[in-house]
């Protein structure tokens, strides 16, 4: 018996060894392109200059922490953090809930052709580039001929320069993002719904449950674990609001709401006459540390409360 067990173990190990070989390219890729470049983070603690290079540049003042101190002492530090969080939290909430609703809706469509048409139409905007999307936003919100103001005027409202306003900025950003990504994000949930237990549905029908009750008690619990995973991943990127779209949408009127971490970093690193690479890296590192802490915390909470987590 012992011998048989040993043989089985050896066999599974040797089979596993072969599979482990498949991992090598990915591990090498991760090491070279994801872990090795992290050594460059050292410039956050330096007064980096490209002539002396990453490992030759002098240590920054205050034992290497001058860039971090400068960042925390920056007069608009809290404004930038607030703006970043507002846009991020707004996006996370809307982009987590609405794709679930859309997926539940698509799942209920019985006509296959109609279902596919709805899916295609809803995810097509995902392929529109950010620059084109922002161009459309500017055109639609044009004071004289924009569709938003035309509708507002039709209903007796007053036209306004929406992109010049702090008030509208985050909404325009989130809603346009939702228009682009709603269908795409819903695909994941539609896929998850395909795994819903049909026996449960049949039993529920026999028990007299109506469609809404089945959605609430069967479909929704099916996709909740996936939604939690997506939510945890989003929280992990809470300070990493995409740069291009916000930057392109910025006007001097909305800077009070649109100056976020990534646009500030761009301003100070790449738009500057002397790029402040060390300072920008320090901001990036701060961003990563906060994101990591958030990710771990939310993951732990999710595990405790809902028994679903990333690890």
């Amino acid at each position: 018996m012992k011998i048989i067990l040993k043989k089985k173990k050896e066999k599974s190990y040797s089979t596993g060894k072969g599979l482990i070989l498949f991992l090598i390219p990915t591990v090498v890729y991760l090491l070279i392109f994801h872990y090795l470049p992290m050594s460059g983070l050292v410039i956050a603690f330096e007064d980096y200059n490209s002539y002396q290079g990453i490992f030759g540049s002098p240590l920054a003042k205050n034992y290497g922490f001058a860039n971090f101190i400068n960042f925390f002492n920056m007069p608009n530090f809290w404004l930038i953090i607030k703006n970043t969080l507002v846009i991020s939290v707004y996006s996370i909430v809307v982009n987590t809930i609405l794709p679930i609703i859309l997926a539940l809706f698509i799942n209920e469509i019985r006509n296959k052709h109609f279902k596919k048409t709805v899916q295609t139409i809803s995810y097509a905007p995902y392929f529109v580039s950010t620059v084109v999307c922002v161009g459309m936003i500017f055109a639609f919100s044009n004071y004289e001929h924009g569709i938003f103001n035309t509708i507002a005027k039709f209903f007796g409202g007053k036209p306004s320069n929406m992109l010049e306003s702090d008030t509208w900025f985050s909404t325009i950003y989130v809603v346009s993002g939702l228009w682009q990504g709603l269908g795409w994000w819903a695909i994941i949930y539609v896929g998850a719904l395909a795994n819903a237990n049909m026996e449960l549905h049949e039993a529920a029908v026999l028990d007299g449950a109506n469609r809404l009750q089945r959605i609430w008690h069967i479909n929704l619990p099916t996709i909740i674990p996936m939604a939690i995973i997506m939510f945890i991943l989003s929280v992990g990127n809470i300070l990493s609001v995409g740069f291009e779209k916000v930057f392109l949408m910025q006007t001097s009127g909305n800077l009070g709401a649109s100056e976020i971490l990534s646009t500030y970093t761009y301003r100070v690193s790449l738009m500057s006459r002397i790029p402040q690479y060390s300072y920008a890296t320090a901001i990036g590192l701060f961003n990563s540390v906060v994101s990591m802490v958030m990710l771990i915390a939310v993951n732990k909470i999710a595990k405790k409360v809902g028994d679903t987590s990333l690890w």
Partner: peptide, 8 residues
């Protein structure tokens, strides 16, 4: 011009 600040 009413749109001055959003002319980019």
């Amino acid at each position: 011009d009413i749109s001055t600040f959003s002319i980019k």
